[in-house]
């Protein structure tokens, strides 16, 4: 007997008795969702434009450097220098993506839907932060990998050449990670303060760019100590100075002496760590209060 066609069987409501995953998995789900959101994946075409525009610019830059390296054999810039040179792109990316990750949730009022689930508030903030850090690190690290592959396949020194190249790459990836952590924590903190994405983006650009003139002013003050500490005043120069101290000639261009920080290198490193710590702490405090209405 043929099966009747076109009949919809309403099997009614089914209770769920399967496993319910724990905190780690929930964190992971939110993290992956955030990472996808950062690149506009699973979102409208409009949400993809800006992230991929930045990715495109960075990728083209990396491709150009790789091409020069493989064709002429000249090292235009090291991996760490690449991360440094792309800082503008990082700022632009943070200004677009950080509000997308947190401001949007504030505006749409979706937070009560999260916080009424077994998701601790701090997990929400940390998962978003980790997603942004990862996105930024991929933004810089991906092109670095392209540069590495280009150099490794065209090296004349065989496996030793590849090894040396890898030893150059790893500090570059670490440095990219430093950029990612600092910019993500500050960018996300600013974005978490407003539901208006445009305000958040403006705030991020302001904090990162408007602080550089302060560095300029401080570095021409008539005190060498003030000059040497001037780079503390802006996140970008802070990261640059910390990198210059930690990585030395991997970051500083030949013939230039790098940022004149004197003997304050360790202080810069501590300041970077402290800046991230304070930003993360404020972010967590912010999410203890938000959406309790």
């Amino acid at each position: 007997m043929p099966e009747p066609t076109g009949v919809i069987h309403d099997i009614g409501y089914q209770r769920y008795t399967g496993p319910r995953l724990g905190r780690r998995h929930v964190f992971g789900a939110l993290y992956l969702h955030g990472l996808r959101t950062a690149f506009g994946l699973g979102r409208s075409a409009k949400a993809k434009i800006f992230p991929w525009l930045v990715v495109g610019v960075v990728a083209v830059a990396a491709a150009g450097i790789t091409a020069v390296r493989t064709q002429i054999g000249e090292v235009v810039m090291t991996y760490a220098q690449f991360a440094d040179r792309m800082s503008w792109m990082v700022i632009f990316f943070v200004a677009v993506v950080a509000p997308e990750l947190v401001s949007r949730d504030l505006l749409s009022g979706v937070l009560p839907l999260y916080f009424s689930r077994p998701l601790p508030r701090e997990d929400y903030a940390l998962a978003k932060l980790l997603a942004l850090v990862t996105a930024l690190w991929l933004l810089l690290g991906g092109p670095q990998l392209v540069m590495f592959l280009g150099a490794a396949f065209t090296t004349d020194d065989g496996i030793r050449g590849v090894w040396n190249e890898l030893l150059d790459l790893l500090p570059g990836l670490l440095y990219a990670g430093l950029w990612a952590v600092v910019f993500a924590s500050i960018g996300l903190l600013i974005s978490s303060l407003t539901g208006k994405r445009a305000f958040a983006a403006g705030g991020i650009v302001a904090v990162f760019l408007m602080t550089t003139p302060i560095v300029g002013i401080l570095s021409i003050m008539p005190s060498q100590t003030v000059n040497e500490l001037a780079f503390l005043a802006s996140p970008s120069t802070l990261v640059g100075a910390t990198g210059a101290w930690a990585l030395g000639d991997l970051l500083v261009f030949e013939g230039s002496s790098g940022p004149p920080i004197g003997g304050f290198g360790p202080l810069y490193a501590v300041a970077t760590v402290a800046l991230v710590a304070v930003a993360v702490l404020l972010l967590l405090l912010r999410y203890r209060k938000v959406a309790t209405r």
Partner: peptide
């Protein structure tokens, strides 16, 4: 997405 945040695979 919210189902996953509630712990569903």
């Amino acid at each position: 997405h919210l189902g996953r945040i509630s712990g569903l695979p």
